[in-house]
Nucleic acid binder design. Sequence first.
DNA 1: TCTTGACCTCAAGTCGACTTGAAGTAGAAC
DNA 2: GTTCTACTTCAAGTCGACTTGAGGTCAAGA
Lengths: 143, 143
Amino acid sequence: MTDLDIAEVAHRAGVPASTLRFYEEKGLIASTGRRGLRRQYDPGVLQRLALIALGRTAGFSLDEIARMFAPDGQPQIDRRMLSAKADELDGRIRELGVLRDSLRHAAACPAPSHMECGTFRRLIDAAASGGVAAPGRRLPGHR
Amino acid sequence: MTDLDIAEVAHRAGVPASTLRFYEEKGLIASTGRRGLRRQYDPGVLQRLALIALGRTAGFSLDEIARMFAPDGQPQIDRRMLSAKADELDGRIRELGVLRDSLRHAAACPAPSHMECGTFRRLIDAAASGGVAAPGRRLPGHR
DNA sequence: TCTTGACCTCAAGTCGACTTGAAGTAGAAC
DNA sequence: GTTCTACTTCAAGTCGACTTGAGGTCAAGA
């Protein structure tokens, strides 16, 4: 009875209804039933959507996230997987920190062109020699 | 004379030749000529590729990066753009830090299921209320 | 001279996460 | 009872950054 309409869920979770349908199709969420055609959801779906969003920002794919939910719907997350992700994040945070500092330097650098700035060149050289991760898999960011 | 063959560049830069062709098509790099069919490159292309990789890990798109190169090939990077990216990175680093700590906690948490752990639930609630960025644009990560 | 193999071009395919469009339906307001 | 509107399904499209495949070419080694 306290079930939420898809529009309500979409609004509260801040995602379009199409995303909810898509997630349902992928088995990430489930609707409790229909009122007419319309999907109804248990309010708990909001927590679940938050968990999904969280997983996404941690760099998990939707498929990985789906695998984290046990058949009963309770999250059943492999602790080693979490540790591994935490370590990954650590490395990534360090990289981004270096990069941020370099960008700030380059932005403030008095050299007429960036290539004339030693710091900038050193950064590039470090990047060239693998000091900064080469682009590959993506992690979610901001809108 | 000291020009590099595409295979050499690919090997040294750690990217497949197809990527070099793709970048050339996009105007990100240029070959100095051909030996037979094969593209030859000035060794400076390696620095440029490093710069491209760097930009990618900072979250710039290839199109944005292309716009950073002046017609003469010298990088001409808008300092305000760099500052803005640095700020963006800052926020992102903070988010990832929170996330990492939460993951570590969840991994070590003695609660039988993650949903029974207060810290985990608080994290999810924070995520649900916008405390953690919703997935959107992606940033490069690791292979 | 012939073969080999790495390069070439161009078009099309891939991947993940959604979004969009067309055509249909049901509950609610008038 | 009719209309309105927000939902429904299903297929197809989008986006970015490449990769892959088919069919072709050319320099170098045997």
